[in-house]
């Protein structure tokens, strides 16, 4: 089975500095790929390039075998879910209206939407009673569940998650990690997750892509990274995180 997303020599610079050196990597169907690395390594930039929140300076991004262009991007975005760390919910809309926004915009049938909504509530373990609330009336964890529902509403082929659990306290975070893993496996969801937490990457990721200073340093399973580090930085990154875990 071919990759759902394929990046070929994609590069990006901001104001004279290189944010992303020409990068090549792919997101396999049905798998969870994790982008990891220290702050400013270019992992979020890579995610934003795929959904075209920023335009690449060079290279191509293929989605489902065809290159993403400014012309087809709005259509493709409807096949991609996008969850960010926080603040992504529209404050003037209730949780329900946030989740249903695109479906309503595309004129989906009310029955179909209602059914899908309760499916999603069950999947993300979000109480239907809370759907009438506005984002400010929800906790951080509840808001991320709503964000997740909104991104899954149209059954996207690809789910992009940019540090979705970064702003949550450890207990909520642990519970959501577990739920995410379950959701991904139940839906056989193709997902690309950005995190700086190695434990989260190891727990959720089928494939880990380690980045540093705008370059992809190594790709593979957590075992590959641990056993066959590509360079000193890989060992250093893994050791730093492990020592934290031991403490």
């Amino acid at each position: 089975m071919s990759a759902l997303v394929q990046l070929v020599d994609v590069a990006k610079g901001f104001a004279g500095t290189t944010a992303l050196h020409p990068a090549n990597f792919s997101v396999e169907r049905g798998k969870t790929t994790v982008l990891i690395g220290p702050s400013g390594c270019g992992k979020s930039t890579l995610l934003r390039l795929i959904i075209r929140l920023i335009e690449p300076d060079a290279g191509t991004v293929d989605f489902d075998g065809a290159p993403i262009t400014p012309d087809n991007i709005d259509m493709l975005r409807r096949r991609i879910g996008y969850v960010i760390q926080e603040g992504g919910l529209f404050p003037h809309l209730t949780a329900r209206a946030n989740v249903l926004l695109m479906a309503r915009h595309l004129g989906k049938a009310a029955d179909e939407m209602r059914e899908r909504l309760s499916e999603l509530c069950e999947l993300t373990r979000f109480s239907e009673n809370l759907l009438a609330r506005y984002p400010v009336e929800l906790s951080g964890g509840q808001r991320q569940r709503v964000s997740l529902m909104r991104s899954l509403m149209l059954s996207p082929e690809l789910l992009l998650l940019d540090e979705p659990l970064g702003a949550l306290d450890p207990l909520v975070r642990a519970s959501l990690q577990k739920d995410l893993k379950e959701i991904f496996s139940r839906l056989q969801q193709t997902a690309l997750l950005v995190t700086h937490d190695l434990a989260e990457a190891a727990y959720l990721g089928d494939k880990i892509v380690l980045m540093n200073e705008g370059r992809i340093v190594q790709q593979g399973s957590i075992v590959d990274l641990r056993e066959k580090p590509a360079d000193a930085f890989v060992s250093e990154f893994l050791n730093a995180q492990r020592s934290l875990a031991i403490l």
Binding site: L53, R78, Y82, E86, G88, L89, F90, P91, H105, R150
Partner: peptide, 22 residues
């Protein structure tokens, strides 16, 4: 805020709909 704009764009709303609905 930028995250709101990013979310509106990433959802696939056209520019006019983004303006009108968000």
């Amino acid at each position: 805020a930028q995250p709101i704009r990013d979310s509106a764009i990433a959802l696939g709303l056209e520019p006019v709909a983004r303006l009108r609905k968000i």
